[in-house]
Design a protein around this nucleic acid. Structure first.
Lengths: 157, 157
DNA sequence: TAAACTTTTTTGGCAACCCTAATTAGGTGG
DNA sequence: CCACCTAATTAGGGTTGCCAAAAAAGTTTA
């Protein structure tokens, strides 16, 4: 019931493990590595840390399973991820891949208040002025291809 | 005109230097340290790096001045900071201190598209359905004190 | 101007993450 | 059962950032 001293990066590892388990059942070091764009040794380092912190069950050359606490953190993080992505796409009309990118970072920093407020806001606006929202999206969804897109920051960091 | 290989943390140092200069003129290592919640040696480390990258002019025991490029990055970052904070406060009704905290992280990751879309959205909604927005804020601004607030993540990281 | 105080810098270290190049374990076909 | 191939792990390093303690520079004051 602690979840303190879990770094942002560890949250990402937990989220990835959760998604791999959900989609494929078995979890391989190399799959985690591929999904997170790191090399296998980095994954092993991370697994050891997560194991020491009691967030996963991990035996060398063997299974990788989220503990109850690890699962709690993974679900929590993933829920924010989904909510933020939906908001960016459905309310702001951001292209899905960019929305994904932004959500993927913000999810580790955003406060609970902001998360729940975003959720309420989306619902409120979709119910109270759906036409205005549709109008905004219509005006913006086609901007996708041009201008702003290329002005993207150069990934990294 | 590059701005690549500037870390998030370095962006924060640049932003802090910009704000100190704007508000007090003179910039002291200890002021930067206080504002960023780090100790002086960390600031000195950062100043050396920023200087090597040509983002500040820095002579030991002497002045600290943003170069043109450093100023560009600082202004850019600060602009996002202001925009995000305003959006969180004026549209979502997040308490200012929390909004500040969230913006302060997101500003280093958010894509240009999302920044400009947020700006446009705020304008659009404020113009097209100001009453509905006011209604949403009225319902939420008083929630400040209770529930969500204590569920804050424990800073750090 | 020299002692006393403050600020800045240097030194030496630590933690989080990542990588390349070995090494070791597991699984497979002959 | 052994050679082979792949996947996982260990060994050894690198970077970024932060800190405490010690040394050096700057400033103030008697």
């Amino acid at each position: 019931m602690d979840s303190s001293n879990v770094t942002k990066r560890e949250e990402e590892y937990l989220e990835t493990i959760y998604l791999l388990h959900k989609n494929k059942g078995v979890i391989r070091v190399k799959d985690i590595a591929r999904m997170m764009n790191v090399k296998p040794p980095s994954v092993v380092d991370a697994l050891k840390k997560l194991s020491e912190k009691g967030l996963i069950d991990y035996e060398k050359y063997d299974r990788i399973i989220l503990t109850e606490e690890g699962m709690r953190i993974a679900l929590d993080t993933y829920a924010k991820h989904v909510l933020l992505t939906k908001f960016f796409v459905e309310v702001l009309g951001i292209p899905p891949d960019i929305a994904e990118h932004d959500a993927c970072q913000f999810e580790h920093y955003v406060s609970e208040i902001t998360v729940s407020r975003i959720k309420e806001f989306a619902k409120f606006i979709q119910e109270q002025c759906p036409y205005v929202l549709k109008q905004f999206l219509k005006e913006n969804l086609d901007k996708k291809a041009d201008s702003g897109r290329k002005a993207q920051k150069s990934a990294g960091n």
